[in-house]
Write a protein that binds this DNA or RNA. Structure first.
Lengths: 200, 200
DNA sequence: CGATGCTACGACCGATCGTGCTTTTCTTCA
DNA sequence: TGAAGAAAAGCACGATCGGTCGTAGCATCG
């Protein structure tokens, strides 16, 4: 029989708790003490699964990234190349922020802001790498839109990605700072304006 | 004679150190211990001037706001109403971010991101208030541009402010995360595109 | 000039942090 | 079933956090 090792299940459960905790108090607030309490395990018991706090943070971040790919990226790629795919990515991302899949908005964006001024280290590197991947993905979608004849020939994909991410981040930030959802409207308007000026 | 009270001079000096420190390690990293060391004063001596850490943070934030008004807002207002004033605000802001007036970029934006998910409290309130003021200021500039016949009649000033701030924040963030200045170009391009679509 | 009150100090507190070490308990598999 | 190894607990550590307290000295002002 497919023995589903118990320790793996425990670890998965702990990681889910860690993700939820990071979502509500940030990665810096993700401490061994509070996580142990929330997961119903002893502080030292956690060290059987994570060799350091940094290790814990990174694994939690990776879990969040996997969820993002699952719930946002993968559905988008099912759409036709070009603007439909780009629109779907934006829509999915907005939902991801609002859904509370993770309590306080986009945990990946949160991490990016939390570690943008952190000293160099594995966690920061992981965050930068994640950001780079996103930037790359959006650039690719923009290039596809050019190839499909929907975006202007002289489109700068990196510029498009910069502005795309800027809108998403602005929405995420406004939502957290002001604790209203009314900025979804503004973000969407900005996105529409973005698409419009890039469309030929 | 104008007696320049000594304690005020000390406090001003300490506050400048605090601002510099907050700029390099964030407001959360602004601890009594490190500040005492950097300012050449004892930890307990600090309590003669600041009744709590929160108090210290708020006063430091206010100093930063004053500097921002001095170096960015005031010069902008000297320009003619409408697009010249808006352009000058953007230029000044970009310089403020890059100048290292404060080491790591825009300390006000940093504070906004640092406290967007903080529990309610005086510091968070101060940050929200500061953000509201900025939003209001930009809206006002946008309205003036409409009155001057430069922006379209049907301009939504709040939407303009949202996007303006979004670009500034995106630049600030990219600069901190990737530690390059190459995004100033992208921010400027985004700003030009913003102005263009709002201009009739 | 002399009394008063603010400034600054050093010592110290309890809480919490990340992380070792040692021991107990539980899984896993031959 | 029993041996081996992994998982988890227990306990303690040094550091650092924000903050208090009693006190000494110096600036300020009547």
């Amino acid at each position: 029989m497919a023995t589903i090792p118990k320790s793996e299940r425990t670890k998965a459960r702990v990681l889910r708790e860690a993700l939820s905790l990071a979502g509500s108090v940030g990665f810096a607030g993700l401490t061994f003490g509070t996580l142990a309490e929330q997961a119903g395990i002893s502080k030292s018991g956690l060290f059987a699964h994570f060799e350091s706090k940094e290790d814990l943070q990174i694994q939690t971040l990776h879990l969040a990234e996997e969820m993002f790919v699952d719930r946002v990226l993968r559905p988008a790629v099912k759409e036709a190349r070009g603007t439909p795919r780009i629109r779907r990515l934006f829509d999915g991302w907005m939902e991801w922020i609002q859904s509370g899949a993770v309590p306080r908005g986009d945990i990946l964006t949160s991490a990016a802001f939390e570690f943008d001024d952190a000293p160099d280290g594995p966690m920061r590197a992981a965050v930068v790498e994640g950001h780079g991947k996103m930037q790359g993905t959006i650039e690719r979608l923009a290039r596809q839109a050019v190839e499909a004849g929907q975006f202007r020939k002289k489109t700068d994909p990196a510029q498009f990605a910069f502005e795309f991410l800027g809108i998403v981040h602005a929405h995420h930030h406004a939502r957290r700072l002001l604790r209203t959802d009314q900025h979804a409207r503004r973000a969407r308007a900005a996105f529409d304006r973005l698409l419009e000026t890039y469309t030929r």
